[in-house]
Every structure is written in C-alpha cells, then in structure tokens.
Design a protein around this nucleic acid. Structure first.
Lengths: 190, 190
DNA sequence: CCAATTCTGGAACAAACAGTCAAGAAAGGA
DNA sequence: TCCTTTCTTGACTGTTTGTTCCAGAATTGG
C-alpha cells in the first residue's frame, strides 16, 4: 500500500478536479489524470481506489467548496439583499471555468445514487444558510414577501445553472451580468 | 455502399438521438446505438459516416425540432405574452426527458466548432422569431419595456436551461412550475 | 548509515472501444 | 428465372480503456 502524503493528496485531488470539470467523467482517461496530478498511476489507485471513487471525491470536494463560497458571499454584507447580489456576481465573475456540479448532473442525472447523495447534501447545506438570509431580505422589504424562501432558493440555484450553461455555450460577460440582474429582478418587491 | 431507406433512416436517427440524449456522446457506445436503432453496424457506418457525424446529425435534428416547437408555442396565441408562457409551460411539461442541447453544450463547451455552429444556427433562428413576439408583448404592455428583446431572449433561454438542469437533478413538477413562473415575473412590467 | 516505507515508471492484462471486411440473405426489376 | 442492388450478420483489427503487477528509485525515521 503506497499512500501519498496528505499535503500532496489535496493538491492532486484539485488537479483531478480540474480535469473532470473540463472533460467530464467519461471524457477523462486515467492517463490525463496521472499527467495532471503529477503522480504515478499506482499512487492514484492506492490513494483513491479507482476512477469513480476519485470522481466522486472530486465532486464532493467541489460541491463543498462551492457551497461554502456561496454562503460566504451571502453573509458578506450587512444587508441580506447585497449578500444575494454578491453571490450572483461571483458566479458571473467565475463563469469562465466549467461547473463540476452542473456537469455531473448533466452527465449522470439521477442514475448514480452515491452522486445524487453528494448533490443533495450540498443543496441541503446551501438551502439552510440561504433561508435565513432570504427571510432577512424579505423582512427588510428588499425581497418580495409573496414568494416562499424555498422557491427563492430553487430559483437562484436554477439561475446560477442557467448562467453557467450560457457561459459554457459562449455567452460574454455582459450577457451573463444581464442574466444575473434579471434573475434578481424576479424576486424584487413590486 | 449500403444506405438504409429514407423512412427507416429518420426513425433510426430518432433512436440514436434518444440514446445520446440520455447518455451523452462519450457515454454511448456503438453497441448501444445499433441495438437502439435496430440496424446492422455496417448500415450505421455506411449511412451516417461515423459516431461523431451521427451525433452531430442528432444534435442538429434535435435543435431544429426543439426550436420549431418553441416557435410554435410562441405563436400559439393571439396575445404574445401568452405565447411566451406557453413556451415555458411546454418546457416544464417535457422536462422529464433530458435535453440534448444542454447536454452537448455541457459535454463539449466550445471545443467542437462544428457543434457550436449547430447551436448558433438554432439560437439565431429562435432569437429571430422571438424578437418579434417579445416586441409585441412589450407594446401590449405585458412585458417590461426597459429590458431589450435580446436580453429577454437570453434570459428565457438561460431559464429554460436552468429548469432542465433542475429537472435532471431531481426537482419535481411543482418546483419546475415555480421556476417558470418566477422567470416570467422577472420580465413583467412593474 | 541502514532499513523500512513510500512513490515512480514501465510492462502487462483483459475488456471495451470505434471502425472495417467479406460473405450471404432479402428484395426488386427484367 | 437470374442478376443486381440493398441490407444484415458476425467475425475481425488495431487502439484505448481501467486496472494490476513488479522492480527499482526516492524518501523517511532511527
């Protein structure tokens, strides 16, 4: 058993994540992985099990980091609505890099229960944090009260996915910005 | 050269489309294709060239049919805004089947120029038809005038993608319905 | 400095892959 | 009937896949 050290493990996982994110699971070969991770083939299998386990781990890591980043933005400002804006702006700013979450949902749908579990966990975590923020914004009169917080989150998440797909399809920054602006418009009080 | 007859060709292409739509390009083997299409391997290669050509053709066919369906809904009613609603409702109603357009953009991004071309053509066609409809709705006071028609189309397309990703991720009909409703809300006059 | 551990590189594996070949069945027309 | 074209079938090729095995280099700890 040859495990690589903890420090390199995380860096290697990040490299694998980058490949999966760009090429998907089926589009990524072990050759591409060992090259990008700069470790031997054997170390890969000893450390991560097999290709699928590595993929699942990468998705898990990505989902966790992304969720954390969303929440950080949500809480970045005193006014809750500004936090929501900040979250969407971050998505727009980073839309040039493919989203592993959207990618994996697209590639596998609901066909892999262990993957679905990962998505559900991240969704649950983000939903929990966002609910609070959204309620605040509603109380402050910055968000329409007639839309339930859960519906708001669903809409924001779907809008984020839409923005990322648009970006992957070639849309420029100004278009993405407009998409985010319109998404927020849907939630404003009238 | 053994070409299969025109009638079967279309049915076979539809079958291939169904497989690609569910499993993507890399996730689909020629074995799966010949089984689903119910033709011999040789007929496949003689008729369609190779796997990639068949895929491109399937995407082209799908994009064309989907664009046509969107436009049909857009023009289904006297009031333009009702047409837009109808388009979104159709998307919600059919969201249980994966979208080959979203799928192929997710899988290949901008890396295949011949694919990008197909997407651009469909986008152009839909945009052209929708512009007219949106202008009408704006003139009728059913859509906010301050948002440019092109921005409206981009937003609608992105929202459709978002709805479809949500569906593939497991969202139920009532959630999808709510997403569509909120998307339209963003465009309403205030 | 030695010995155990950890990692690398290359070779090897069976399975699956996309694509080709050739022989024959089916069908259609004369 | 016979001949030509159209299509199916199954075997075949070379490549690539994911994974494992093994010998040796590097690193580590005592």
């Amino acid at each position: 058993m040859a495990r690589i050290k903890e420090f390199d493990r995380d860096k290697a996982l990040d490299s694998a994540l980058g490949v999966f994110r760009e090429h998907g699971f089926d589009g990524t070969s072990t050759e591409m992985l060992v090259t990008a991770m700069k470790i031997g083939r054997q170390s890969l299998y000893d450390t991560f099990g097999d290709k699928w386990a590595l993929y699942r781990l990468a998705v898990e890591r990505y989902a966790s980091a992304e969720t954390e980043a969303h929440i950080r933005e949500l809480r970045s400002s005193g006014r809750a609505i500004d936090g929501i804006s900040a979250m969407m702006n971050r998505v727009v700013a980073q839309a040039d890099r493919a989203c592993l979450g959207v990618n994996s949902i697209c590639e596998f749908g609901q066909s892999r229960p262990d993957l679905t579990e990962v998505h559900l966990a991240a969704d649950h975590r983000l939903r929990h944090a966002a609910r609070e923020c959204i309620s605040q914004a509603q109380d402050a009169g910055d968000l329409d009260q007639s839309v339930s917080p859960d519906a708001v989150i669903d809409f924001l998440i779907a809008s984020i996915a839409g923005i990322r797909i648009a970006a992957r399809g070639g849309a420029g920054p100004e278009v993405l910005q407009s998409l985010a602006r319109l998404a927020l418009r849907a939630l404003m009080p009238r």
